[in-house]
Simulated scan of single mutants.
Amino acid sequence: MPSNTTYPAILHIRDFIDHVEPDPTRPGKGLSMQLRISLNIPWKDIQSDDVEQDEIPTLVRFFNDSNQSDLYKPNTFVYSSGSFLTTSSDDEKFHIVLHAHNLDRHPGNEEDTESYFMHCPQAAQPIVTFLGVVLERGGQLNGGPTLLHYRLQTTVYNTSTRTHHTFPITAYFKNGQRWANFPPLSINTHVFLTGRIFGLTKEHRQLAVVTDDIHFLPTSNHHLPATPSSSGKRKRVDRWSQRAGPQTPSKSAARSHTESLPITHQFQDSPEIIAPDDDDEEATQITWPDTADEIKASPRATTSPPERRSQRPRKTSYADILGQSKYDT
C-alpha cells in the first residue's frame, strides 16, 4: 500500500455549540461556516493511567447551503458526521477538525435553556472509524493500570489545504475476555478500526480510542499465490458427447475417425463439382478423392493423371446444331 494513499477517517458527534464564525480557511465565502465545540467525553468505566478524560476542542466546518445562519447559535444541540483529522503544534493547542458531511440541529428553542436541555439526548462518546498503520505497542491486557494499546498512523486528505495530512491515534483494548485470544499486531500492519473516543494521551497528545471492532487489511507485501502457467490452450469441455444419445454419433467420435485417415498432398483439395446446364442434367459428374482402401488396392500411377475435365463428354453447342442442319438440307 503506497504511503501517500489516503482513506477517510469518519467521526460521529452530538454536542452543543459554543461559538459560530466564518470558516477561516475559506475567506470571502460567506456560506462557509465554522462551529467551535468543546467535545464532551462522558465518564465511563474505561480508564488508563496514561489517558486524561477531558473536553476536546473541536472545529466543525460546513457549507451552509440553506443560508440560514440563525439555525446555528451557541447552546444549540447538533448532530454531525464527516471526515476528520487532528492537529497539534507548539503554538497551537490540540484540536479536532471535522469536515461535516451532514449537520442537523436538535429542534426546539435553545433560548429556553431549562426546557431545551431537558429534551436533548444524553451525552454519548464520539465514534470514529479509520484506517491505520501500526507503529508501536504499549501496555498490557488484563495486567497493570495501563491498558494494552497500539499507536497507529492515519493519512487523510485535508480539504482545507488540499494536501495529505498524517496524524497519530492510539487504540486501546479494554480489559476482559473479549481480546484475550486476539493475536498481537505486528509493526506496519494495516487495520481498519472502529471505536469510541475516551480522552487524550498525556504524553503525546493523541486521540485515545477504545476499540470496538477491528479488521486486518492486505498490504502490498502480501502477494496472492501465483497461478500456474498453462502450457497450451485450455481444453474445451465436449458437451455434445455428453448429450449424445446411444444412436447419435458424437462429435468427438466423428472428429477422431476423420483424423485417422491418411491425407496426401494430392487429395487435399475439396471435391470437384461440375454444375449441369438446364438442358443437360445427365452430363453432371461429381468426383471424390479415393478412399484409403482404394488407394491401397490400386498401385500409384507413375505418370501424372490426366486432367479431370478431359473425362467430361463434349457438349453440343448451338453453332454445331446450325451447321449440322445446313448439311442435312
Rank of each mutant, 00 (worst) to 15 (best):
I56K: 03
P168Y: 11
W240A: 11
L35F: 10
V133N: 13
A319W: 09
L148G: 00
T113Y: 13
K73I: 07
I274M: 03
D90G: 14
M33F: 00
A292V: 09
G144V: 05
K326M: 05
N109M: 08
D212W: 00
A297L: 14
S298E: 06
L147A: 04
D278W: 08
I169Q: 01
Y172F: 15
K233I: 05
D45G: 12
G199Q: 06
L193H: 00
E136L: 05
R196W: 00
S186T: 12
V51T: 08
A283F: 05
V210S: 04
D328F: 14
T113G: 05
Y116T: 04
W179E: 07
H12V: 03
S89P: 02
K315V: 10
N221C: 03
A275H: 10
I187A: 13
R14M: 01
T194C: 01
P121M: 05
L322I: 15
D280K: 08
D328V: 15
R255W: 04
I13H: 09
D269R: 08
L103T: 03
R26D: 12
S32T: 10
E110Q: 13
T146R: 05
N175I: 13
H99E: 12
F198W: 01
T161V: 06
E111G: 11
R151H: 04
E114N: 13
E136W: 00
H99W: 07
R243P: 00
E282Y: 07
L11S: 11
S250A: 15
F94D: 04
V60C: 07
M1H: 02
D91H: 13
L261C: 05
P121L: 06
E92A: 10
P305D: 11
S81Q: 13
T113C: 07
D104I: 07
G323M: 03
G138E: 09
G176P: 07
A180M: 08
D290V: 09
H101Y: 03
R178F: 15
L103P: 01
D18Y: 02
T163V: 06
S270Y: 08
S310P: 00
F77N: 12
Y327K: 14
T219S: 15
R162S: 09
Y327C: 04
L59C: 13
T329E: 12
L224Q: 12
R308T: 14
D90C: 10
F167L: 03
S304N: 02
K93G: 15
